[in-house]
């Protein structure tokens, strides 16, 4: 299932949908960028509460499928501009990282 299909099923708010047709191959949850760099892999969805511009750099370098910002954290405008420029999909939700992860597991992403 791709990012956009997931976002629809999980009722995530799309903030940047460019290249949202990438298939999600895994999920990583984390807020410390160095640990995400070491652990998340290509085509993973990244669930985080971080919202500043550097999350886009991390997602681009790792070729992540998308970023899912949880707990209704406000995403910086600079982050969205960069995400649109680099075609990194970003979604937002008021749910917790755990809730989103559980829903994703139910939908078959392990």
């Amino acid at each position: 299932m791709n990012c956009l299909e997931f976002a629809e099923k999980l009722q995530l708010t799309p903030l940047c949908e460019k290249d949202g047709n990438i298939e999600i191959e895994g999920v990583y949850i984390g807020d410390l960028l160095s640990i995400v760099m070491a652990k998340a892999k290509k085509n993973y969805a990244w669930i985080t509460i971080q919202t500043h511009i550097n999350i886009v750099a991390v997602a681009e370098l790792l070729e992540l499928a998308c970023i899912i910002v949880v707990e209704n954290m406000e995403v910086d405008n600079d982050t969205l501009l960069k995400a649109r420029e680099l075609k990194i999909p970003i979604f937002k939700t008021s749910e917790s990282a755990y809730q989103v992860a559980c829903r994703m597991a139910e939908l078959g992403v392990k």
Binding site: D31, L32, L33, S34, I35, V36, M37, A38, T48, Q50, H52, N54, I55
Partner: peptide, 15 residues
């Protein structure tokens, strides 16, 4: 607070 400074920079480089 921005998610940096995890103390994993040099260890990641080495790894």
């Amino acid at each position: 607070e921005l998610g940096f400074g995890a103390g994993m920079g040099l260890p990641n480089i080495k790894k």
